[in-house]
Structure formats: C-alpha cells, structure tokens
Design a protein around this nucleic acid. Sequence first.
DNA 1: GCCGTTTTCGGCCCGACTGTTTTCAGTCG
Length: 579
Amino acid sequence: MTNAEIAKTLREIASLLDMQGVPFKPRAYEKAAHAVKITDLSVEEIYRRDGLKGLTEISGVGAGIAEKIATLIQTGRLPYLEALREKSPVDLARLSLIEGLGPKTINTLHAQIGIRTVEDLERAALAGKIRELPRFGEKSEQKILKGIAFLKSGGRHLLGAVLPLANDIQARLEMVPGVKQVAVAGSIRRRMETVGNADLLVISNDPDRVMDYFVGMPEAIYIHAKGPTQSRIKLSNRMNVDLRVVSEESFGAALCYFTGSKAHNIALREIAIAKQLKLNEYGVFREDRPIAGRTEEEVYAALGLPFIPPELREDAGEIGAALVGALPELIDYHSLRGDLQIQTNWTDGAHSIEEMAAEAKRLGREYIAITDHTKSLTVTKGADEEKLRRQMAAIDALNKKRSGITLLKGAEVNILKDGRLDISNETLAQLDVVGISVHSHFGLPREEMTRRVIRAMKNPHADILFHPTGRRIQRREPVDIDIDAVIQTAKETGTVLEIDAYPDRLDLKDEHIRKAVEAGVKLVIDSDAHHIRHLSHLHFGIGMARRGWAERSDILNTLGRNEFLESLKDGRRNHRRAA
DNA sequence: GCCGTTTTCGGCCCGACTGTTTTCAGTCG
Ligand SMILES: Nc1nc2c(ncn2[C@H]2C[C@H](O)[C@@H](COP(=O)(O)OP(=O)(O)OP(=O)(O)O)O2)c(=O)[nH]1
Ligand SMILES: [Zn+2]
C-alpha cells in the first residue's frame, strides 16, 4: 500500500468525522494524512520493519491512528472507516466538489431530505425543495445549481497554462489607479506543477476601485464573492481567481499567508503561538501590537526563522531545516548555461538545427545538444546510424561557423522493450551526449520496466535518462517503475537523471528530485523543445528542481560547456567500471 | 486524536465573505 493510498484513507476519515460534527479529530486525521504523504520512506515498510512504534514516530501519528494504519496494511480494509461510511452513506467526495457545499451542509441535506448523490441534489434543487429547508433560501438553491453546473470542469490546471494568464491579470491590475504593487501568490508562486486557481495580492490605497475592476474583467463569468479586502471570481476557462488587497505595512505578511501552503501557514502560526505571538495575514503581533509585516523576511525573522523560498513552503521539513540553518541554497532561475534535449526537423521538431541554435543563443544558452529521436520511433522518422552520422557532420560544419553557441552531437535513443538501445554502441561512442528514454511498451509490469530501464542505464554510452517516468500530466500516467532503484542505479553508474522542463512532463518531479539530490545523483534540466518557443520552458524545470531542494551543484548544466562535458565523461568512466 | 523548551491536561491557525438570520454558522482562503 502506497503512502498516497494511506493518506487518502486518512483524509476520507477526516471528512466523514467533520461531516458528523466530531470536533478536533478531523484535524488530527488530516495532519496525519499530510505527514504520511510527505514521508519519503514507504510507511508500509516502516510498519513491517518497526511495527506500531515505527508508525508513531511519524509526527502526527499517535497510538490510535497507528493502529488504524496497521489494520489497513495488514488486511487492506478498515472497519472503523466502513462504520463511518455506513453512518453517513453519501457520496461525500463528489458532493464536496460542489463549490460552497461543505460537510455540514451535506450532512443537513442528507438528514433532512435524504440527499446522497449529486443527482439527488440536482433533482431536489430543480424541484424547489432546497429553499423550503430551514436556514436555506432561494439563493442557496441557485448557488447549488450553479455549483453543479460548474462541477465537471473544476479540476486543476497546468502551471504552464496558468502562469501567462496570471501574469496578464497582474499587468492589468497594475494599471488600476491607486495600485502600488501586484504579486502572484498561492501554488503558482510555489511553482506547483498544477494549480487549483490563481491567487493575486495587491497593495492599493483605493481597494474598492481594484475590486470593481477585478470583478468587472471581461473574462469573469461569475462572482463568487466581493468584499473590501477579498474577492473571488470564475473565469471563462472555469478557473477561479482570488484577489486580496492589503496596505503596504501588511504586504509581507499577506504575501506569506497567500503563498501558503496552508500546512506551512499553520506550522508558522504554531511557532508564533509558542513565542506568545500571533501571526495572521496582517502581520506578526505581540499583545495586539504589530512587530512585523512589511516584508516576508521581516515576518520570518520575527518568528526566529530565515527567509524560506516559496518553492519549499510545503511543511515538508523546510521549517525544521530553517530552524537549524540547514535550508538548501537553491539553484537560481538564471543559472542554466546549456540545454541537453532538443529535437529538430530531422525528426519530429518544427525547426532546423540552425533555427533552434539561434533561438537558444538569443536566450543566453552557451551550448545545446541536438537529440533527435532514433530509428525504432518510426513515426518521427527516427534516425538510424547512417542518419546520425550525417547529422554529426552537419553539426561539425555548423560549429565551424562559430555562431556563438556550441552544438553538441546527441540523440534521444530509444530503450527497447528488453532494455537494449536501438543504436549501435559504435555510433553512440561518437556522440557527445547520449540521452536514453522509453517511448514504447509503457504498460510493462513494474519489475520488468525497472529491469528494462536499469539495463539501459548500464550501457556505458548512456549519459542521461530522459524524462524517467514518461508521464504527461493529465494525459498519461507515469510508467510503473521503482524510482528508488533507478536512483540507486544512477548513483552506481553515474548516469545523469533529467528534469524535463516541458510543462506537461516535469519529469523527474519534485519529490523524486529530492530523493535523487539526497542520494547525490546528478541532474540536468532540459527543455525537450520541439519548437523554438519551447526553448524558454527551462524555468519550469528550475521551479521543479527548487521544489526538490536542488542546489546549483546538483544540476550539471549550470556548468560551462567544457566542465559539463567533463562531468559526463566522468559518468562514462563510472559506467565502464560498473559494466 | 495528538502533543509538550513555561502543558501529560487542555489546548488545537486565523480571518473574510455569504446567506439567512436578528447574532452567526458555514465555507473558504
Ligand atoms: N492560515 C491559513 N491559510 C490558508 C488556509 N487555506 C488557504 N490558505 C492560504 C495558503 C494558500 O496557499 C493560499 C491560497 O489558497 P488556495 O486554496 O488557493 O491554495 P493554493 O494556492 O496553495 O493551492 P491550489 O490553489 O489548490 O493550487 O491561502 C487556511 O486554512 N489557513
Ligand atoms: Zn491557489
């Protein structure tokens, strides 16, 4: 049983208890769910090795919850949860997705008129039955219908799609008279791979004017709430945008609050309490007198902490690290000098080598590897040995022109079903950068997939494992592979693991990156560009790397060309030793 | 149900907005 599955069960218990009006326990179960989720070791393995005692060492898991986790692991079931479900036989998960509908309302609707499903609810609302209930009215009924209408699309959105939109709204808010500053906060600022909404923070001396502009924006199709300091709208793409307006003295505290995460905020507020202080979105207070609030640095300092970068604010160990001065020196957003995965019109890219090189140079890259697909990927006109040799000659010729950027000879070599590569070692030996990746047989069982990839990594010519899990966010699940084994192999062979920065890949992802960094495995961040406009996507990969606690020294393409190639050669020497 | 650098009992993050209410519960951030 995975940590994610255990966490999901604990969260369901929390929701059911919440719905049944049980005080405090829901928070305890939610906290335990979070703790299980962010545990890097397998909780099941912890239990099998150290028993209940091992479980209670997870902060937030005490005797009661440990017992429940143990039952779950041992039997795959949990009678306690089944009893709760029986007591509240409603489709809580789906009903909760209706905006504005929470556990208490769902409980009332079930108790009073037997609503169990979204369909029940819609029928009752259409029949005018909701408004007849005590403490409900016509507006509540309309909101429920509205919420059901919006239900289907209420998912998460790719950061890559939302960031431009958020920046656009930011720019327009900056033009509103009275506005001094606008910041993008929330999960966008933390650079999560997907975001639930956009959160924007404004400093203004004329809040009403900002709010009027905000709710009147042409793309606003619904106004959830509008107040003097906070408003919330739904855009035509069905995504919500939250706006908070504060004064300058509170900007740091508000930015901290609005950036989150929620768990990070609560942890900070608990630190404040322990210090006899109060933290909210307006500042840090001692006996109701403000002692910090203008900047985030000031807020953290008042709590006895150094500034914590937004990408780390997940309550996943960053506060503990901050307390002992052990925060990582994260790789910064302008430190990449090369890009090691680029496709051209030699295969499925849209542009010539020259065009990609020119754009990469314009973006400040010092070197790029041309890594077109290889022959077994026939749909892309994948290169065979002969075509690769021709491309190498073409690259040699281009490099002679001294265009100001170095082109490295590479390939994205297919890993065959059995783990062999589809290009001969003789040809691979002539390339500067050999990327390897899975592009077929995605559905292999875990053991077979892991064996396959590990075998490919052990080829002494294989330099970089491209997009190791093969996921396409919201489109294709990752392959089933033992990522710990891949990281361990990388450590042994010196194979570099890629952080593919393409917005719907982001592969490796944050939690895997953190494991790789902890293991001392080297990484690169690549655009995987198939078009000149993809070359600028590297910052999404840097965001992931930062979320994975990566420092500059963990990322090889922060090095100049020669040092970078030297590191790859080191990797190859290790390969030979291992092979 | 969990937890402890003023606690092993008594707390549990804190505030904005809405709708249906004459004073606040519920939901959300
Ligand atoms: N103190 C506190 N802050 C919260 C709470 N809920 C949300 N926040 C803060 C932290 C969040 O990052 C921020 C924005 O809320 P969101 O619901 O939009 O979450 P966030 O942007 O982190 O994730 P998402 O939009 O789902 O991708 O508001 C809460 O219960 N308490
Ligand atoms: Zn958000």
